[in-house]
Amino acid sequence: MTDWNRLTGGASAAFGPAGFETGIRRWVTDSLASRIGGCDVDRNGNVIARRSTPGAKGRVLLVAGLDEPGLMVTHVEENGVARVAPIGPLNAKHLVGVRVRFEGGAIGVVDAEHDIDGGAVDFAHLFVAVPAGTVRVGDTAVVDPQFESAGQILYAANLPWRAGAAVLVALAGELAGCPYDVTFLFSAQRSVGARAGRLAVFGETFDRVLDIGTVAAAPAAGKRKGSVRPGGGPVIRALDHSLIVRPEIKDWLIGAARSRGIPYQMGVKPDETSDGGILAMTEGGLPVGGIDIPVYRTCGPMSYLHTSDLEQTLLLLKAALEE
């Protein structure tokens, strides 16, 4: 069984806000080297790895995101005050008091200009307190991931954006016997609306595309009810903000899960734009499905997941690729 603690921890610790996926790109390319041989980085920052099989039954594209949301410095004041703009879906109200990490290693703490109790806070009110002279306009930061594991539960700020890449990296080493030509795409700028991924496969066609991501899981109470559970198995996606999965593709994945006795859940995530959705509707269109790993709290400065879901997602992908 895959060492999910090590793999996910590595992905989580790597730096990479959208457009600045430096650390995570290095982690993916290094991790792929031992599993699938070479891979390419295109000029948009996507990582692409291809595995071909003589007499393949068809071509499959597997996509997961590289990046995570982050902050960019737009103005530096004296005394170590940096004004920032969000890169991707970060909510100002979740950031006050949060520790952030800059690409160069500097640590900052997010603060608000005035008492925000009861009032709306937005980025105009926020600043990052950093040691004076450590950051410049254009520098980027992420919420410090603070990865930690406790048995089968893994904690980190960026799991919603990194769990998919961890699973795809693991899969790259376990494709023996897969009858398809498989292309792995680790996409840049996914968290800002899935901008860059599709550029990596412009002009190509695939018989199937699977988009691997995460979905908000089983909160407990109030309006946040939902039936997707951490530990309940991979979630076969029916819909996201950019994608409605066609019934025959859902049936393919459900069939794969059933035939191997893999627990699975069905889910929708109306708020997230995926590379899969963008791929489905650009150029001549592609048949796209999605599998999501349940993550508790997909927005905000901390999240957790269950390693069994990573393992079962890997098994479901292998099963689907053998169908």
């Binding site: 950019s242 409605i244 489905a280 509707m281 650009t282 150029e283 001549g284 269109g285």
Partner: peptide, 16 residues
């Protein structure tokens, strides 16, 4: 298909 969720079908049809 999928006009009501963002003219997705027409994008593909026109391209093809």
């Amino acid at each position: 298909v999928q006009e009501e969720v963002g003219v997705r079908g027409a994008a593909v049809a026109a391209y093809r």
